[in-house]
Amino acid sequence: MGLSCMIRKGVRPVVELLAKSPAEGLLPYAKGAVELSELALGKAASIAPFKGQLDAVEKALGQGFPKVGRTTGHVVWFSQGQYLAIAMDIPDALGKYAAITDQSDAWCALELKGAAAEDVLARLVPIDLRQSQFKRGHCARTQLGHMPLHITRTGNDAFRLLSFRSMAGTMVHEISRAMDLLAARR
């Protein structure tokens, strides 16, 4: 069994599969001092180093890994013992030292940007996002309403938000609703 038994049919595939982004057709949305847009995450893979192999992983990738809740280059802390490499080529050899899992299609990635971005998130995210506590490059695993969330501060007034791809519609709805309500204050 296995690949060797299969017969290649020809050079050209018989169907063309079209790619669709998680929040396709839903964004961008702007209200008040905030803008919400979809980010193209590109290739993303989780890396969970096997026991005692973090050094080997760092060496193989040629870069150091971030501490908890931090970002180093293209690698973000993702969960306990787990990192997410965004837009990076992962050499096959890394599989010896770590569990590598493709996550390129698992997350809906949004960017929330603008002077009131922090105020919008205060409606949905239960963690302390004050600039003094959650600086550029800081990231956390938490919730957006009732959805799972990985959040990174990417700028003084910009955040990258990752939640489940299947929840993209709710994610956009919740954030844009919070934007509406905030903008309607006077």
């Binding site: 908890v68 809740g69 306990q80 239960p126 963690i127 956390a140 695993r141 938490t142």
Partner: peptide
């Protein structure tokens, strides 16, 4: 111990 102090809802 990993993430710091969080709201009970996350647990």
């Amino acid at each position: 111990p990993v993430c710091g102090e969080r709201d009970r809802r996350e647990f």
